[in-house]
C-alpha cells in the first residue's frame, strides 16, 4: 500500500523573475508519508510559508510538480484546486481565523457543509472532534467568547472536519502562551497518534520543534537539513 501523502519534485518559486529574481523556494524535493508529524523550521524569509502555500495548493510553483495522494496539483485549474483543498487538505492559521459570526460548532461544521456532508454524519463528526479537543462544553460559544488557545483548538478541529489527507499549520503556536501552546501540541500529537493524521507545520517555536517526529530545515529556499527531531539543544543541523 502506498503511504505517500506529499511528493514534491524540483519545486521552485521565484518572485520578480524578470527583474531581480528572488528564489523563495529553490529546487526543493519533499516526500511525506502518512502519519508524519513534521516541523518546517528556518529563519524568517527562508521560505517556510511559501513552501506551505505551495504544498497546500494556495500558490503554484514556477517549476516542478507537487503530487498529493496521486494527484498532480500543479496541473489543476483554480476551481479544481479549491475543491481539492476542501477534500484533501486541512489548514490551521497563525491567527486562528475562525468565522466570527459562527459558533465554535458552526465553524467546525462549516467545512462539512461545503462538502455537502449529511446532517447526521456532521453531528457525529462534530461531537467526536470536540471531544478530542476537549471543548465539548464550549461548542456553542462564539470565537470571541473563547481564549486564544481554545480558538486554535477549534481551528484544528475545523481542519480535521473534512477528513483531509494532511493538515498544514502555519506557526500554530505563535500567538499562544506556553500553557495553551503545550495543550494544543498535546492535542495535535494525540490526533497524530490515535487517528494517524499527518501534520506539517512551520514554526520558530522550540517547544513545537521538540515535539516533532521529523524536522525539515529551510534556508534561503533550500532544504538544508531533514532529520528525525531530537531536543534542540543537541541538534547541530538546525539553523535559526
Amino acid at each position: 500500500m502506498n503511504n505517500t501523502v506529499i511528493d514534491a519534485h524540483n519545486i521552485s518559486r521565484v518572485y520578480n523573475p524578470e527583474t531581480i529574481p528572488v528564489y523563495a523556494i529553490n529546487n526543493v524535493h519533499l516526500h511525506l508519508e502518512k502519519g508524519e508529524f513534521t516541523a518546517l523550521v528556518g529563519p524568517s524569509g527562508s521560505g517556510k510559508t511559501t513552501l506551505l502555500n505551495l504544498i497546500g495548493g494556495l500558490d503554484k510553483p514556477d517549476s516542478g510538480h507537487i503530487i498529493i495522494g496521486g494527484t498532480d496539483i500543479t496541473s489543476l485549474r483554480a476551481n479544481e484546486l479549491i475543491n481539492f483543498r476542501l477534500h484533501n487538505i486541512g489548514f490551521v492559521f497563525q491567527s486562528f481565523n475562525l468565522i466570527p459570526v459562527l459558533t465554535a460548532r458552526e465553524n467546525v461544521e462549516f467545512i462539512m457543509l461545503l462538502q455537502k456532508v449529511k446532517r447526521k454524519e456532521r453531528d457525529k463528526r462534530v461531537i467526536q472532534l470536540f471531544k478530542q479537543i476537549g471543548l465539548e462544553d464550549k461548542m456553542n460559544n462564539r470565537p470571541v467568547q473563547l481564549s486564544g488557545g481554545q480558538q486554535q483548538r477549534v481551528a484544528v478541529a475545523r481542519a480535521l472536519a473534512s477528513k483531509p489527507q494532511f493538515v498544514l499549520a502555519d506557526e500554530p503556536t505563535a500567538n499562544l502562551d506556553s500553557a495553551a501552546a503545550f495543550n494544543l501540541l498535546d492535542i495535535m500529537a494525540k490526533l497524530n497518534k490515535e487517528e494517524n493524521t499527518t501534520f506539517i507545520f512551520s514554526t520558530h517555536d522550540q517547544r513545537v520543534i521538540e515535539r516533532a517526529k521529523r524536522v525539515i530545515t529551510l534556508v534561503d529556499g533550500k532544504i538544508t537539513a531533514d532529520t528525525a527531531a531530537v531536543p534542540l539543544t543537541n541538534h547541530k543541523l538546525i539553523v535559526t
Binding site: 497546500g56 494556495l58 475543491n83 483543498r85 476542501l86 477534500h87 467545512i111 461545503l114 462538502q115
Partner: peptide, 12 residues
C-alpha cells in the same frame, strides 16, 4: 477572511 475562506475550500 475572504482569502481564508477560499483557502480552506469555499468556492468563489
Amino acid at each position: 477572511e475572504m482569502g481564508m475562506l477560499v483557502a480552506i475550500g469555499m468556492r468563489k
